[in-house]
């Protein structure tokens, strides 16, 4: 981890543990790594739209989840994302839920 900018190369999640451009751990390409991290945040935000939550990366080292009422939660690994979302909304987030999938499909349709 770089102590100046706080950018930690790896948050140790299995999604980050594959050797390919942009997937970290053993990848030394800083830009590709950041791009992949940014993509992940964008996708996570798209998935969070139905719950009206937002996630942002903080200093490349942690994540900040926030609700429309201003609640925020900081956590360090993407592994904690879904449990944190469920805790904040007090609802189960089920990728097999037909309503949830319907909202995502609408999101796909709406995209340019």
């Amino acid at each position: 981890m770089c102590s100046l900018c706080g950018v930690l190369g790896c948050d140790d999640h299995w999604t980050s543990a594959i050797a390919r451009p942009g997937i970290y751990t053993r990848n030394t390409d800083r830009l590709a790594r950041r791009r992949e991290a940014a993509n992940r945040i964008r996708l996570a935000n798209a998935l969070l739209e139905p719950s009206r939550l937002k996630i942002a990366e903080w200093q490349g080292a942690s994540y900040v989840l926030s609700s429309p009422t201003g609640r925020t939660q900081v956590f360090e690994s993407l592994a904690h994302l879904w449990p944190e979302v469920e805790a904040m909304t007090a609802r189960a987030l089920d990728p097999l839920d037909p309503d949830f999938l319907e909202r995502l499909k609408q999101r796909i349709e709406a995209a340019p």
């Binding site: 950041r34 940014a38 996708l43 097999l96 999938l101 995502l104 999101r107 796909i108 995209a111």
Partner: peptide, 28 residues
């Protein structure tokens, strides 16, 4: 249902990530 869910996620990520424009970093 698992299969459907997978396809929805895969399509969504293609859409979201293909939108571009906001890619924060480009190789110099």
């Amino acid at each position: 249902r698992i299969e459907e869910s997978f396809h929805v996620f895969n399509r969504l990520s293609e859409k979201v990530l293909a939108q571009g424009g906001t890619l924060p970093l480009r190789r110099a």
